[in-house]
Each structure stands twice: as structure tokens, then as C-alpha cells.
């Protein structure tokens, strides 16, 4: 029980530190802005550890963070194989393919105001649907290996990217388009010099949404059949065989990959759209 009380005490102390930091005059410092949420996250881990150890929760139900870390360290080979299968082959291939196709399709339909008017509402609607449900169909079309997972990812990321790019290309104001007309600019020149740069914040919005969707698609598609590797495969079999710490280790990898991919896209966004008011602060 002392473990639990210790954890609770740590929680209170950390909360106190954060409160003081947030109210202090250093609260806008970069270091503080990073330290506060990190301490908050660490506190949650400590609480989790304290609850599991203090209340003697069976590892089959909820393993302690330290158990998960130990499993992680022991099973790095398995985790790596699954990472390659699910993330590198399934998710990334699908992501790159789906985003490119979505982007190019947007450029194509942009030439026709009629197509834009017709596809935008349809695309918006489809982007909100549980597209993940087509996973079993695509698995039956493309087989158990990573190709079917990449196909699921392509379909899932296509619509959000399409819709955002089309929306972004509409984002220039009439004055800027008039200016290009006074220069006698061609469609291609206006696209390259004005509309594409102006669309970039939207493009990246779509790309960011797509990163999370790509991982979801690649993992869930494995529930419907996969070779004997892959994160989704390991999670569903791990749950069945009660190897719960391994499942949590896979989830940790998934979380880390998701955050890293998102962070990477956000970083590129920061570099490309440095001029946008939201990035200037």
C-alpha cells in the first residue's frame, strides 16, 4: 500500500510544482512549456505504477509500466519485425501512395469548377465515414500480406487529402488572382506561384490527419488476416493468449510511431509554411 501512497504523494507534489511554474513569470519560457506537460505525463505513469503495485492488480488485466518496459527490452526483435511489416511496408507505402494520388486528383479536378462543386461535398461526406470497414474486402482482394494493408491505407487517406487540397486551392482572395491576371499569367503560372503556396496550410492539415489514419488502417486491416507478423496480428493474438505485457509493448510502439510521424509532418509544415500567421508566433 505504501507504493500507492507514495505515488499519490508524488502526484500532489508534481501538481504543486506545475501550478507554481504555470503562475510564475517564467511560464512562457520554452523549457517550462515543455517541462510542465512532461512532468504531467510522468506523473500519470507513476500513478499507474502505484495503482497496479499498490492494489496488486494482476498483470493479465493491467501490467505495470515497468513490466511493459521489461517486456519491451526483451522482445525488441519481435517488435522490430512487426514494425517493419506494419509501419514501413503497410502504413508508409499506403500513406505515400494515397497522399500522392489524393494530391494529384485534387490538381486534376481543380481545372473544372463543375467537378470541384460536385466532388467536394461527396469527398467531405466520405472522409467522415468509417472507411476502415472495407478492410476485409481489400484483404480478400489483395491477399494477407502487406499489400492489402497498404491498399486500406490508400483508401483511408485519399479522401481527407483530396478534400483539403481542393479546399486549399480555393483559398486565394480575388485581389491576388486579379494581380496575376494583370501580369497576363497562365493557369500553370498562377497555380505554381500563387495557388499552391497559398494552399499549403490546408495540404498539411490533410497530411497530418492522414498520418494517424494510416496507422489505424494498417493495424486494423491485420485483424482480418495477416502473415504471422505485424502489430495488429500481435495485438489480436496477444489478447487471445493473455500475453498482455507484449500487447502493451506493441501499443507503446504504435503510440511512439504515431506521435513521431505526426511530429515529422508538423515539422515539415513549419518549414514550408513559415509565413503563415499560425506558425509565426
Amino acid at each position: 500500500m505504501t507504493v500507492l501512497y507514495g505515488a499519490l504523494a508524488f502526484w500532489l507534489a508534481a501538481w504543486g510544482v506545475n501550478t507554481i511554474l504555470a503562475r510564475s513569470r517564467w511560464s512562457d519560457l520554452r523549457a517550462v512549456r515543455i517541462f510542465v506537460p512532461v512532468l504531467f505525463g510522468f506523473t500519470l505513469l507513476v500513478l499507474w505504477q502505484g495503482l497496479v503495485r499498490g492494489l496488486d492488480v494482476s498483470p493479465v488485466i493491467l501490467p505495470a509500466p515497468t513490466d511493459i518496459a521489461a517486456t519491451f527490452a526483451n522482445e525488441t526483435d519481435t517488435l522490430w519485425v512487426d514494425f517493419v511489416q506494419t509501419v514501413l511496408k503497410g502504413a508508409l507505402t499506403g500513406y505515400l501512395l494515397g497522399c500522392s494520388v489524393g494530391f494529384l486528383t485534387a490538381l486534376l479536378i481543380d481545372r473544372s469548377a463543375f467537378l470541384t462543386a460536385g466532388l467536394l461535398p461527396v469527398g467531405n461526406f466520405v472522409a467522415a465515414l468509417p472507411i476502415i470497414g472495407i478492410a476485409p474486402i481489400l484483404v480478400s482482394w489483395f491477399g494477407f500480406d502487406w499489400h492489402s494493408k497498404a491498399a486500406v491505407v490508400v483508401v483511408m487517406v485519399f479522401f481527407p487529402v483530396l478534400v483539403n487540397v481542393v479546399q486549399g486551392l480555393k483559398e486565394t482572395d480575388p485581389m491576388q488572382r486579379d494581380l496575376m491576371r494583370t501580369y497576363g499569367a497562365t493557369y500553370g503560372q498562377t497555380l505554381m506561384k500563387l495557388r499552391l503556396p497559398a494552399a499549403m496550410p490546408f495540404v498539411f492539415n490533410g497530411l497530418k490527419i492522414a498520418t494517424t489514419l494510416a496507422l489505424i488502417g494498417a493495424i486494423v486491416a491485420e485483424y482480418f488476416g495477416s502473415p504471422i507478423r505485424g502489430m495488429g496480428f500481435r495485438i489480436s493474438t496477444g489478447v487471445g493468449s493473455l500475453n498482455i505485457p507484449l500487447v502493451w509493448a506493441e501499443i507503446t510502439v504504435a503510440a511512439a510511431v504515431g506521435t513521431t510521424l505526426y511530429g515529422l509532418v508538423a515539422l515539415i509544415e513549419k518549414i514550408v509554411t513559415f509565413w503563415h500567421p499560425s506558425q509565426r508566433v
Partner: peptide
Amino acid sequence: SRAYGYVFQAAGLYPW
């Protein structure tokens, strides 16, 4: 034939 330059009320410079 690019006979004129046009200046609008807003500067309309491209931020990028």
C-alpha cells in the same frame, strides 16, 4: 502585352 502595372488598395504581397 503588359502595358500597365496595377496597384490595389491592399498591398497583397505574398507572405511566403
